[in-house]
Simulated assay, not measured.
Amino acid sequence: MSKLNLLYIEDDRVAASGVLALAASEGDRVIWEDNGAAGLRRASAEPFDVIILDRMLPDTDGIAVTRRLREAGIDVPILILSALGRSQDRCEGIEAGADDYLSKPYQTEELIVRIRALHRRAGRRTHSAVLIHGAFECHLKARTAFRDNRYIALSPKEFELFRYFMENAGYAVTREMLLRDVWNMNFDPQTNVVDVNIGRLRRKLEEGFSGPALETIWGVGYRLTEGQ
């Protein structure tokens, strides 16, 4: 597992110490800044894999910091950690340019998963026009899918789902992740939209093949197999 270079902007020393300890246990490097201005200067001075950002800072708001980072052309994935966890708050963070938003209190395991998921997606978007996982291929520019070199015709939404599974290949993908990242929803609409689309994608990826494409992990979500 790759070790990450993280920037954490948080004024609460106790909260910061918890994240610093967590990162150390994972072997990651964390630079901690306790105010927005210092965080902006640090983000402009050196490259980071992910920026973790508190929303309520002593000198500014985390939303404003996010906008400043994006306006400066800094496209590092941003994860906002905040005690403000209403749907409206989460939407404001995403609209400002954050890639993810996690409400406090949170489970440490979830924080680790989200940080690494952001890093994987950013790396694959930046460095590859073709994602390969086992027998599957996802051609990003052409927006085409293949299994064992056989073309799979997908609708636009099915392709977005397939791409998301490819970007998170080998990892469990939850319903919340799909709603947030594929449907751009920061709330559960209490419909079966995810299940219906997963079913359609699964049928297309598995038709004519003996092995499964998507496995259901009960109580968690779904995971893309290697298709071999």
Rank of each mutant, 00 (worst) to 15 (best):
E10P: 10
D12I: 00
D12Q: 13
R13F: 07
R13N: 03
A16V: 02
S17F: 07
S17G: 04
L20I: 14
L20Q: 14
A21C: 05
L22Q: 06
A23T: 01
A23C: 10
A23G: 12
A24T: 01
E26Q: 11
E26F: 00
E26L: 06
E26M: 01
E26K: 06
G27V: 10
D28I: 05
D28E: 03
R29Y: 07
V30Q: 08
I31N: 11
I31T: 12
W32F: 08
W32T: 05
E33L: 00
D34W: 00
D34S: 13
N35M: 10
N35V: 00
A38Y: 00
G39T: 01
G39Q: 07
R41V: 12
R41L: 14
R42G: 04
A43P: 11
A43M: 06
S44Q: 14
A45N: 10
A45T: 14
E46M: 12
P47T: 01
P47F: 01
D49V: 09
D49L: 04
D49E: 12
V50G: 03
V50S: 04
I52P: 00
I52H: 03
L53R: 08
M56G: 00
D59G: 08
D59E: 05
D59K: 07
T60N: 09
T60D: 02
T60H: 04
D61P: 12
G62T: 08
I63G: 02
I63P: 02
A64E: 15
V65S: 07
L69C: 12
L69V: 14
R70S: 03
E71Q: 15
A72E: 14
D75H: 10
V76I: 12
V76G: 08
V76F: 01
V76A: 09
P77M: 02
P77H: 10
L79E: 08
L81H: 09
S82A: 14
A83Q: 13
A83H: 06
L84F: 15
R86H: 13
S87Y: 03
Q88D: 15
C91A: 15
G93P: 13
E95R: 15
A96W: 08
G97S: 13
A98T: 06
A98G: 05
D100K: 01
D100F: 05
L102T: 06
L102S: 05
S103D: 09
S103V: 04
K104S: 06
K104M: 11
P105S: 02
Y106P: 02
Y106F: 15
Q107M: 01
Q107H: 10
T108P: 04
E109A: 14
E109Y: 09
E109W: 07
E110C: 03
L111P: 00
I112G: 01
I112S: 07
V113D: 07
I115F: 01
A117K: 10
H119A: 08
H119F: 08
H119G: 00
R120C: 06
R120Q: 14
R120Y: 10
